[in-house]
């Protein structure tokens, strides 16, 4: 398991009607490494994340996540992937604590884990307020707690630091940062920060792979070119 790559995509594509949202994605991410995905809106970043999260089935190619082939063995991947999506994936009328406890039950975890995360992210004072009353930044912290609740070996992060002030970003760093030790896939619009954080970079444009390589070999100009 340790030497097997965490993610291995070969020619993965996904159609919406006649339009290819993602075409011919071929990436290998070693376990513990970080992949950053750049690309303008609609380039296929979210589609790729959703394929990795087992929420979308690929139409072409072969995909294997955490050593399990998708979609045939997708049930074996579920529960091992944490997704921090654009939406918070929380119930608005429930409190942070209730949301986390609910997800803990779905993942067959005890309630201590929820408390521990609430404390780590300094959410305890607001833990019993409905999440719809929380600010965007606080909401994002709850969403991070939900994404890492079951201690997943693979994290999928869709612009994780949006809406976070630097202090809050530092707070969640141990959970979703490099020191968390998880394999990570991050989408980003920030060439400098994105390249600094990752080992591998993937650039998407109109669903196709326009850029791929170790971050040490890619300069910010190449990333910026994707958006032009």
């Amino acid at each position: 398991m340790a030497d097997a790559p965490a993610i291995e995509l070969t020619g993965v594509g996904r159609r919406y009607g006649e339009r290819w949202a993602l075409r011919d994605a071929t990436v290998t991410v070693p376990a513990g490494a970080t992949l950053v995905i750049f690309g303008p809106n609609g380039a296929g970043k979210s589609t790729l994340l959703r394929v990795l999260a087992t929420l979308l089935r690929p139409h072409t190619g072969t995909a294997s996540v955490l050593g399990e082939e998708l979609p045939r063995r997708e049930w074996a991947v579920r529960g091992k992937v944490g997704l921090l999506a654009h939406d918070a994936l929380l119930y608005r009328d429930l409190s942070a604590r209730e949301n986390l406890r609910f997800h803990a039950r779905l993942h067959k975890l005890g309630e201590e884990r929820a408390e521990q995360l609430l404390e780590a992210t300094r959410l305890l004072p607001r833990a019993d307020d409905p999440v719809r009353t929380l600010s965007r930044g606080l909401l994002q912290r709850v969403a991070v707690c939900r994404a890492v609740l079951h201690d997943p070996p693979l994290l999928l992060l869709d612009e994780p630091r949006a809406n976070l002030d630097p202090a809050a970003a530092e707070l969640i760093e141990p959970l979703i940062g490099r020191e968390s030790g998880r394999t990570r896939v991050i989408t980003s619009h920030d060439p400098v920060g994105g390249l600094a954080e990752a080992d591998l970079a993937l650039g998407l444009r109109n669903g196709s792979q326009a850029l791929l390589g170790p971050t040490s070999e890619i300069d910010t100009a190449a990333v910026e070119a994707l958006y032009r």
Binding site: R78, D87, L89
Partner: peptide, 12 residues
């Protein structure tokens, strides 16, 4: 808020 996705990704 996409709560569907969170439920669908759970090992249930």
């Amino acid at each position: 808020e996409g709560g569907f996705d969170a439920v669908l990704m759970a090992p249930i």
